[in-house]
Design a binder for these strands. Structure first.
Lengths: 390, 390
DNA sequence: GGTGCTATGTTTACGTCCAGTACAAATTGA
DNA sequence: TCAATTTGTACTGGACGTAAACATAGCACC
């Protein structure tokens, strides 16, 4: 309802547009910015000048390939960084991500037990202190982004429940903010994964996309709706893992039966191939060609059930693309044909035939990039805000 | 990505904000507009003046109840209207809806058989010609909005499939535009119902809402996500009726088994109460207190299955409110307790406890208001566009 | 029924911002 | 070396909103 106003709001929007283009679509010439932002050369010049003065972008000479005066390349400054933190059951991963989306540094700090919130904060602080030399080279640290495997009220910065970490009704943003002395944001890991894939990954360029990620702890995901991440009233949207697809199936910890993640399940896959646990590549190898029948049967079973859920979601969202990460990506490549045709035929009126199935592209950097993106979001919409936090 | 710019774009935004407030939130004083739009008195004055000159709003003296100079009331002009058309299996309903959302006129033209597209166009033209005297009183007819029960590619104005009408791969916008000589927009009826309920109905004021409507032809719906209607890549989003909730259930015409609309079904309800067909009130009476067991059992069965679907949707969307229309509204009131607790407990981690269940508020005007709203959308975002179509 | 109070409309001066134009600069190709 | 082409830069003009001063209209109190 309430729209801001004033002529300087216009400037904010345009600064934001230019910076966002530079951030998302790599180095661009000024001329390209003129086209993409529908602004004049004069204005782009002024905007780039201001962003440059703010330290958010810098220019380099372009290797001119065409006639005419060469247009300098505008880069989002990778010396403006965000910290990204992903606490998990056996490690806390901390990353330094630059504007432009590049992960400068990635440190996985293994833990002997599941970290408490306080431990996660302390580990992060220790890791960041160890990085202080490196961070001193950065011109500006925009903040910390937390990718938490659980229900996160992104607006309040509170973890409602992170079952595998054992965190519950905990303010996470506060402690991190205090410990690191910089603004913090928190969100669900799959939501941030969606964000990352939609900007730099397999869903880049699509305005309507779904992302589903399968890990040992279950299935989560997110949606991009008209170019905007789906958040929901409190940031809990995207819990695709608890869509019931087999009402008489096994009991799920959520209290219902036959949830997607109880049926389509990494543990079941590992069991049938006889592994205790496996990373992505190991599982991929184990599901290669020439499989014994029981393995094949389980793959087909899970593929078919996944197809039911995906068909439901296509009916609900009418997306252009569905991106599958984690073991769901492995499952996709194990029998692309089967999943493809099932999803093509499942939704109403052949709607599924227009949906692309893609495998996630960002791999291990996914959550760091997503968490950083959540931090950058504020800076991208309000570039001048950097001036107040020197 | 590409944002427009220029100082006059700012004006467009502000004009749009003021007009939208006046349209959605009834007559407002200028002072109220100052607050709602965060603009100064001067600017509001200028904006209201321009909108007034365009014929989009008018002012009346306010009955001042407080000290201070009374602020005039700004009304969205109800003499700016949209035509709304809803073709159905046994009738074509045409409405005249004014800015502000009031339905001035509603004409239901019964047909002896299911209308073809051409017949629907001709009926509409005839009805509109009959209304010509009335429409002459209108200052401006913004266009026609078509609420079609089926899959509609809103962007292209094409009906992909409207099973009950027998329309298929048909350009609907073209013929109506030609026949009436004014711009036309088309969309799925449930999508437009969602829009209407979210602006003037039970979902008004909520930024994240779901709407499900149950009719003789099935279950459709829509979502409001962050204040924006969910469309999907081609406008087909919101087909909640074909979410599979009982894989071993009855075959659905969509090709799958146990879809929501095959299980939760008006026909089954009517059958168990011994009615051939019924409008809302009749059904409501038939499901009143003191029911025989078989009826009770069917109500409970359908309520429980509806709860499964709603729980899934809460997990997916994390909405603030779910609005139920048609026989789903009747079902809600038949056993509010049962549906309420099931939805409160179904979703993950008690997420459902925060969701409100509401019955649709707009009744028979729903689709007309929604279709008109789709027409007004263009005018609301670009108020000056009215000048070019006198 | 006057007088002051208060909230609001109105007018004017001002600053910001972007478009458009003219010119300068830098590269290609002949 | 020169023409063609594309782009950056400097300057002017117009549109817009803000801020402040002024005008206005009803209320409340005496």
């Amino acid at each position: 309802m309430s729209e801001r106003s004033g002529t300087e709001d216009l400037r904010r929007r345009n600064l934001s547009a230019v910076l966002t283009e530079a951030h998302r679509h790599g180095p661009l010439t000024r001329a390209a910015l003129v086209q993409r932002c529908s602004l004049t050369r004069s204005t782009i010049g002024a905007l780039v000048g201001e962003l440059s003065a703010l330290g958010l972008v810098y220019e380099t000479d372009a290797a001119a390939a065409r006639v005419g005066r060469p247009s300098p390349l505008v880069h989002a400054s990778e010396r403006v960084v965000a910290l990204a933190v992903n606490p998990d059951v056996d490690a806390v991963t901390v990353g330094v991500v630059g504007l432009g989306g590049k992960v400068h540094r990635r440190i996985r700090y293994s833990t002997s037990s599941v970290p408490t919130l306080r431990e996660a904060v302390n580990i992060t602080r220790a890791v960041v202190e160890g990085l202080s030399v490196e961070l001193a080279g950065a011109e500006h640290v925009a903040g910390v982004g937390l990718a938490v495997p659980g229900l996160v009220n992104a607006g309040a910065g509170v973890v409602r429940l992170a079952p595998h970490l054992g965190w519950k009704e905990a303010d996470v943003v506060g402690p991190f903010q205090e410990a690191l002395g910089m603004p913090a944001v928190a969100a669900n890991d799959a939501t941030l994964g969606t964000l990352a894939e939609s900007i730099f990954g397999a869903a880049a360029g699509y305005r309507d996309a779904l992302y589903l990620n399968g890990s040992a702890s279950g299935i989560g995901g997110g949606a991009i709706v008209g170019g905007v991440p789906l958040g929901g009233a409190s940031g809990y949207a995207g819990e695709f893992g608890h869509m019931v697809i087999r009402p008489d199936g096994e009991a799920c910890h959520c209290g219902r039966r036959g949830c997607l993640e109880t049926e389509v399940n990494l543990e079941r896959l590992l069991k049938v191939v006889g592994l205790e646990r496996a990373d992505g590549d190991q599982l991929e190898d184990a599901l290669g060609p020439g499989l014994p029948f029981p393995v094949l049967r389980e793959i087909r079973r899970q593929t078919d059930l996944l197809a039911v859920a995906l068909s439901n979601l296509v009916n609900v969202f009418n997306p252009e693309v569905i991106v599958l990460g984690g073991f769901l990506g492995v499952l996709l490549d194990a029998d692309r044909e089967r999943l493809g045709t099932a999803v093509a035929q499942g939704p109403i009126s052949g709607l599924g035939a227009e949906v692309r199935l893609e495998r996630a592209a960002l791999g291990s950097e996914l959550l760091l990039v997503g968490a950083a993106e959540a931090v950058f979001a504020g800076l991208l919409t309000e570039p001048r805000s950097i001036a107040s936090h020197p």
